[in-house]
Design a protein around this nucleic acid. Structure first.
Lengths: 232, 232
DNA sequence: ATGATAGTTCGGTATACACCGAACCATTGA
DNA sequence: TCAATGGTTCGGTGTATACCGAACTATCAT
């Protein structure tokens, strides 16, 4: 009885085409915004919101509010496993699903991209790691960083507009942003944005025309080695 | 696209409470009649028929027509696996589902029971094995047996009403019946029925009041050893 | 043949729910 | 403060489908 209902309920959640499309996208293991998922499912934001709420309620998805975005991801490996076995049943290969595979396989995107207004991917992680390893940045709480005195000096030296970043009073200064291709936090918030601006202003990096991919220039690579002590 | 639709379709099939109840029952690995499944799902025979047809169409179930019954079972281990992982998601233990567990755990029922009008379970298998090993019975086609001349003599010796069995012209004479607790064929049809009758008439076995369980008597055990060369 | 049982097909009803428009709340940046 | 953006809540509409009654086919027993 109970066990049967539980089975039908979770299966029914996956049984809707829009929800299945969302789950399919989430099978890449990354977190996606509600808008992103709405687009993937081909429904409006309202409809998507309803779907996402129900799946989160049923513990199929986990949510993390970040700024004005809400990131949804699969709640556990068990969920991914169940979806995978259903996909296998349908005679289709599970993991290399067309859309998410394109993401995963794009090495440039994994290497460096914008995440909102700051840097993500391997470069974003490398920058953050460098700052923490040199004692410029310390974790503060579970969602923020603290910029140390040595960190302030470092920023001034490499030309990060700290003053501008501090003027944005309504914005979080140094935020931890989870990177879902690297599965580790990188720096965001006003400071993260200012750091990214520095990269673009100094010609260390440049945005590609389409998408979120960012190209690290030769001088950018040199700066990574020279200023951050990181080889990427 | 295609992969997404396939996911939602198979999930939707499992997402209906009635179908989930049927699948749950079928998780015991045995084959069940349409009526049986309708009862388990709490729906009428018509409704159940529709559900079963759709699941068979989608290759979730396999069907085997046997007499006027149609036996449905899970089409593959993959199907069971998918159901299991969904049940796990729902936080419920998968295998020991209340109803089927009762079946499985009843050693008397596994030992000997009626299957329609003939003997099944370990005793049914033992009788059939004895007949084939002594050359009394030979497989004929994929669904029937052939009673050899020595088999006729054997039947006459132990008192099986062969004449009566042969009179039932409209009925299959010696049929292979799949035994889903033993996963091997045993003898059914008119001959199987006649053999079972012999067991009851001679006091070798007796039906219990409720259910399909059959008790093998002491003289029945002696007969199994003496006449069939089998120890059960 | 006749009646009984297992199963399916067909038609109509009723309920569940996915969907969107509109309004609303929260966060952000000027 | 205000405007912009991301997300959610609410109400009404439309479609999909589960359900059953009734009629039908196939198998089996007398």
């Amino acid at each position: 009885m109970t066990t049967v209902n539980a089975l039908s309920e979770v299966a029914a959640l996956m049984g809707d085409p829009a929800r299945a499309a969302m789950l399919s996208l989430l099978m890449d293991g990354r977190a996606h915004t509600a808008s992103d998922l709405a687009l993937a499912a081909g429904v409006t934001a309202q409809t998507a919101s309803g779907h996402l709420g129900r799946m989160a309620e049923a513990n199929l998805l986990a949510v993390r509010a970040q700024g004005r975005n809400r990131f949804y991801r699969l709640a556990s490996g068990d969920v991914a496993h169940a979806i995978e076995s259903l996909m296998a049943l349908a005679g289709t290969r599970a993991q290399p699903a067309s859309r998410s595979a394109a993401w995963r396989r794009d090495p440039d995107l994994r290497f460096c991209r914008t995440c909102y207004d700051h840097l993500a991917g391997q470069v974003g992680i490398a920058v953050t790691d460098s700052l923490t390893q040199h004692g410029h940045l310390e974790p503060k709480g579970s969602h923020d960083w603290k910029l140390t005195p040595s960190g302030e000096l470092f920023c001034m030296r490499v030309g990060v507009d700290l003053g501008g970043a501090r003027q944005a009073t309504t914005r979080h200064f140094a935020r931890q942003c989870l990177d879902w291709s690297e599965r580790r936090p990188h720096i965001s918030g006003a400071l993260g944005s200012a750091i990214a601006d520095t990269f673009f202003k100094k010609g260390w990096a440049e945005k590609l025309r389409r998408g979120r991919t960012v190209r690290l220039t030769d001088s950018g690579r040199r700066a990574m080695t020279r200023d951050f002590g990181a080889s990427v």
